[in-house]
Design a protein around this nucleic acid. Sequence first.
DNA 1: ATGATAACAGTTTTT
DNA 2: CTGTTATCAT
Length: 682
Amino acid sequence: MEEIFENLNDEQRRAVEHIDGPLLILAGAGSGKTKTITSRLAYLLDVVGVSASNTLTLTFTNKAAKEMRFRALSLIKQNTYPPLLCTFHKFGLLFLKFNIHLLNRENNFVVIDSDDKKKIIKKINSQIATPLVASEISRYKNSIMSPDEAYKQAEFHQYQQIAKIYDEYERYLQENNLLDFDDLLVLTYKLLEQNNNLRLQTSNKYKYIMVDEYQDTNELQYKLLRLLSSEHNNLCVVGDDDQSIYGWRGAHIRNILEFDKDFDNVNTVTLENNYRSQPNILKVANALIVHNRSRHNKTLKATRENGKEVVTLSSSDENEESRKIAKLIKSLIDEGTEAREIAVLYRINALSRSIEDGLNRNGIAYRLVGGLRFYDRAEIKDLISYFRVITNLHDDFSLKRIINKPKRGLGKASIDKIESAAFNAQVSIFSFLNDASLDDLVTLVKKKNANTIKAFLDELVYLKKISEESSYTFLDKFIEHIDIKKMYASSPDESEKVQNIDEFYALYRDYIKQNPSSTLDDFLNEVTLQSDQDQVEGESIYIMSIHASKGLEFKHVFIIGLEEGFLPLNSEGSDLEEERRLAYVAYTRAKDTLSLSHVNSRYYKGRRSDVDKSRFFNESGLAGGSLKLENKSAYKKGDLVRHKIFGAGRVLGVSKAGKEIKLHINFAGSKRDILASFVEKL
DNA sequence: ATGATAACAGTTTTT
DNA sequence: CTGTTATCAT
């Protein structure tokens, strides 16, 4: 027990010791959030005596789940099996494995990823842009809206069309027993909602629920949590409204802002002590974030000693910018800083190119985080499809992907013919092909192809048999019979693809070794919900988008592209407050030094344009020497401005107040002095 | 069936 | 300028 409290501050300790009833932990950046959650879990098990099986801890990413599991297990002293600590989606998957029969579906479903989803949509419709349809379907599902309801509420023809596609899409998933990512949560919610006994039983099982990154939950996750905690209200949520940067993909910041209204008798603990950054960095971050209106009031308090001032880097264009930054990084490394302690962050991935150039020219090794993920690569998806077909020969969706890989002379036309013939016969593609005689097949495809199809089916059946006999020998036989590597051996980026294939085989072997009793099916389920694998840390610096940097920390952080139109992105399309939170997240990644870079001219989308310094410099109190009254971004008498509280007003006079500019403004008759950083120019 | 070229669009991303 | 998709010859 002593050990759990070691190194916890008073607030953290209060959060850990709170047992019953709803608890909101507002955990500022670098305030020891993970430590608090994992300590609380250990406290529940070791001190309060709660059984591990009565707890549920939910995260958004596998990475977070993994780290928490590791840290929690090192704290828990009691000899117990590990508590359930997983992503929302993994929880849905487990829950559905046990309960989906209540919806009259079999639990041998296959989870498809967003790529698969788009393919299905594309097949159904070719008129409306697939990404739009995909995101609308996701929206409907997350609002628990049936295709019928979506159709009724559609105001425009196009949205009626989308509702129809949604209807067909749902039917396709059901017929093939597929679930998309949304389904894992939606169906879990529906089951709990429609089945009172199940709700009762489930809520009573998970008596103590914790949710990480609560500011990122969407409406559906919120509703799901309500049902899960309905019998006890022992819901502990942890998050930071100031770090809510996923509004664009449905996260509801209101969930964390109004948690205390949503639940009765909420206890709130605010963690404001920051153990990560030096005071100068926090000063700038705090100055920026107070400009947001929708937030819980809190201020990060420094615990570290002061260090270097936050640096502003001004350059004429992106080439100069990257040159400067590369030089600075080089000298840091020369001074002995470990490369992995340095990161360059940007708002949009397109900005990575220029910084990559600069780093390359200076011989600085970098690791670009993001980009195409391992499991999204074509060669890996091919392998997964093969494995899926082998576990379930009637998985038409996967079979279609691999039927011509390696090439068997079957193009789109032939596959379409086969598919519709199978559809008419009301059987799976496999059954259709397997039952058909060679003569039957010849009516659909060329004689030569008919033979290869038959041979292909035999191989699948053979491999299925092997896979059921032994997960160990399966892979060797698979490689022996299906030579995927050869297929990619002649492609331009050959070596990388072959490496990926080997990597995947290694993952399989590893999995079987660690879970000897597991089946191929278990492996596949694990793999679909897995996105990023652990990056091996090497002697290279990191470059990544700000979104990708959330949750990480570095001694030295460089943020590039702090310009109007880049950060903040564009004031119209995106939410300015979310853009500000994004800058805040970026600032608070820094431990020792923070450098903010902007240029006067940037090359983007094939053309060069002039860009203004981001308003966030002013808002962060970093106006510095470049604040000139005749500067075109500065204010002058007669300008229209808007203040968060006082609304629109007209500038009557401009003066200096230290580093800041002070404006005398007329707001509908009431005249006030306001610092320029607190208003927006109209 | 497959490879080559034209047309086009273009934040952020996990599961 | 890129990467992706639609269309067109072979």
